[in-house]
């Protein structure tokens, strides 16, 4: 066959070009399929199902359900328990986030500045993150026991009197918040330590030559600005995690005393699995998801805009 004959064959080029492209496309779909299926199955479908359920009166275990429109949400507005629960959750977040972020940063700076026992301090502060909170909550329950608890013994010895930490309506939520801080501190510390490690040494040295060699001016000139990305991440992660508070409430107070520690996820759990009002529980979940989604969007927005330098 001559060259002219090959070139003259109609469609020969097209076939040769199309087949590899199609194979490549198939391979590409094949490769993204597992991740897509998992995402759909674990994340997207349950979320959609929850949103759909929140517009029904479905009872947990019931064979049928009725479409009730926005009735569940209307009921939420008038529900004393839900309002209390939402306020408590926001209060809890506003106590836990600032405390755990600031303390996490302080502990990270202290560990980074110190020379000895670094690994020990890192492990000690990180331990609560790895431990099962349910088990730890039981330990806290004993520590907080009004008459034989270690904490009251210390308070009594210090002349500060004994307190009924978990049964006093004024103290119960702050006490849970303190446990939340204790639990979250380690993660924030580790994230800040990673952030501190990534600050180039040159910058600290340039600052000390430029005259920023006191701890405060060094912190404001180099450390704090360079921790911007870490701080944003820590803030958002802490907020989302404290919105999710549940374990300690379920184990230690069950929402009491007198709804003083009623929080969103606990109310949702009660409605859905205690009173079997799955539709109503789903509506609470949607409210909860909206908060988490807003926080995530905020993070994406800010991360795109300001806090990244390179």
């Amino acid at each position: 066959m001559t060259l002219a004959a090959i070139a003259g064959t109609p469609g020969a080029e097209n076939i040769a070009r199309k087949t590899p492209a199609r194979t490549e496309a198939l391979a590409a779909y094949g490769l993204v399929a597992p991740a897509t299926i998992l995402l759909l199955g674990i994340l997207v479908l349950p979320t959609v199902a929850t949103v759909v359920l929140s517009f029904t009166d479905w009872q947990f275990g019931a064979a049928s359900l009725n479409w009730v429109g926005a009735d569940n949400y209307g009921a939420l507005l008038g529900d004393e328990v839900f309002r209390k629960s939402l306020t408590n959750t926001l209060l809890y977040v506003s106590m836990v986030v600032p405390a755990s972020v600031v303390l996490g940063l302080v502990v990270a700076l202290l560990i980074e500045a110190g020379t000895g026992l670094r690994a020990f301090y890192r492990a000690a502060f990180f331990l609560p993150v790895t431990a099962t909170l349910i088990a730890m909550a039981t330990v806290w329950e004993i520590m907080l026991h009004p008459s034989i608890g270690f904490i009251n013994l210390v308070f009594d010895a210090a002349g500060l009197g004994k307190h009924n930490w978990l049964k006093d309506p004024a103290l119960a939520l702050p006490t849970l918040a303190a446990i939340g801080v204790w639990q979250m501190l380690g993660l924030n510390m580790i994230l800040f330590l990673a952030g501190l490690k990534s600050i180039p040494r040159d910058l600290h040295e340039a600052a000390s030559i430029d005259g920023a060699d006191g701890w405060w001016s060094r912190f404001t000139t180099v450390t704090w600005p360079m921790l911007g990305p870490s701080t944003l991440f820590v803030l958002i992660i802490s907020s989302i995690r404290s919105f999710q508070v549940f374990d300690t409430v379920a184990v230690l107070t069950e929402g009491g005393p007198n709804k003083a520690t009623e929080v969103l996820l606990y109310t949702m759990y009660q409605e859905g699995f205690g009173f079997f009002r799955a539709g109503y529980g789903a509506a609470i979940t949607v409210v909860f998801l909206t908060f988490v989604l807003l926080l995530t969007l905020l993070k994406v927005r800010l991360a795109e805009r300001r806090v990244h330098y390179s």
Binding site: P200, D202, L203, E205, A206, A207, S208, I209, D210, G211, A212, D213, T221, V222, P225
Partner: peptide, 16 residues
């Protein structure tokens, strides 16, 4: 360093 009255240019430039 700040009291020595020197300026330094780093290989990485070390700009803030």
């Amino acid at each position: 360093p700040r009291e020595r009255d020197v300026a330094m240019v780093f290989q990485s430039y070390a700009l803030y």
